[in-house]
Design a binder for these strands. Structure first.
Lengths: 219, 219
DNA sequence: GCGTTCCTGACAGCAAACTGAAAAAGACAC
DNA sequence: GTGTCTTTTTCAGTTTGCTGTCAGGAACGC
């Protein structure tokens, strides 16, 4: 299994790498977001191990960027504080699991195994929605009446958010956050446009408008 | 729910307070860090709404101080658009969530609900009413015989008030205040109309008329 | 019966949401 | 680099449906 470790604390990074190498995994290491981006461009990794507290800032943005570009590479985030907000932001940004430092190396192995099993594993969990639409969140694929529908990365980013919270109405602002960098506010009706496109591709029934509030997908 | 709002822009502060008061929350307001510290000493708040750009300096220090003293009071920080670093610092300092100004008041409510739910541990406080109607006050959703019913924002504003005070008869005047800004007199039968609309959506039994007094919902 | 209070269908005005199209920005091959 | 194709964003015209108002009628208390 090919693993990319993004971590700037050298002691920790070395310990993790030794442990994983000993377990027969292929580990590349980068100490910054910039390096990581370069390495990700060159190689297809099976798992991404991502520290959120990097010197050059936004580990989360790296993850968000990846997801926006359509990558489904499993990602486990490493966070220094036992901070619920970090964890939730991370999971929202597209992380699959998280570990709070300091962590046990055996637990890391266990999580890695779990995550990769979830992905390589046979039964991808399909979520069924109204209108004959099925969604494979892990595999980033959508079927309409059994036929595969291709979504662009933005379309997916938006739809993904909604499918992950079925029954809950999400405001346009919340949905914008799935589309753009933190705080990069946009002053047009982009969300409306993407909802419109998704409806054309998936049928009218899937996404419901709650006027004055936002949009909702039912499970 | 008892909320402390720390915000120096009076217009914003008033808007937030009105909105939350209308939603039945108890809101205290302070315009500076010093005041906030005093108020925090005197009262146990359920949520802290903290602007990071205060005149007397660092709202962040207030938060760090709280956390250092072992307080786990949930905190939502309010930041301007361009202060991404603030936001990250805030989350690191122990904030649970953030809102970018200008924000939608309904979204504020949603975040508040989410944060407090996260802490109280009850994910879905459903209230059951007569006529097979269930209400999720935090999630702003209503089920009738297990089927989701969509309410418009005005309909919800009114119904929310009644469900929060089950068994208590509310006058039309009281209910009007849930619908409009404080003091905005309205000289028509709007409340009656909305009660009628709610009954059509939820069934006749849910809202009872107390002639000459007002309306009541039973738990 | 009477007067009062409440209910509800209808409707116009308006803001929110939808959508087609075109411009702008990226992606990719060459 | 250039050209071509796809995706993203913006804009404007149209549609939708929420809202407040009213009027006629029903229900209630007397």
């Amino acid at each position: 299994m090919r693993i990319l470790l993004v971590e700037d604390e050298m002691m920790l990074a070395d310990a993790v790498r030794d442990h994983l190498l000993a377990a027969g995994e292929a580990v590349d290491h980068s100490a910054s977001v910039v390096d990581a981006e370069i390495m990700l461009r060159g190689t297809n990794y099976d798992v991404l191990l991502l520290d959120l507290n990097l010197p050059d800032g936004k580990g989360l943005d790296l993850l968000r960027d990846l997801r926006r570009k359509g990558s489904a590479t499993p990602c486990i985030i490493l966070t220094a504080q036992d901070q619920i907000s970090d964890r939730i932001e991370g999971l929202n940004a597209g992380a699959d699991d998280y570990l709070v430092k300091p962590f046990d190396l055996n637990e890391l192995s266990a999580r890695l195994a779990a995550v990769s099993r979830r992905y390589s594993g046979n039964p991808n969990p399909f979520v069924e929605l109204d209108g004959g639409v099925e969604v494979d969140l892990a595999g980033r694929s959508v079927l309409r009446d059994g036929v595969q529908v291709d979504l662009t990365s933005r379309e997916w980013a938006l739809f993904d958010q909604m499918v992950k919270r079925p029954g809950q109405t999400l405001s346009k602002r919340q949905l914008e956050e799935a589309l753009y960098e933190f705080g990069a506010e946009i002053e047009s009706n982009t969300v409306e446009v993407y909802v419109s496109r998704l409806r054309r591709k998936l049928g009218k029934e899937v996404i419901k408008t709650v006027r004055g509030v936002g949009y909702r997908v039912d499970g």
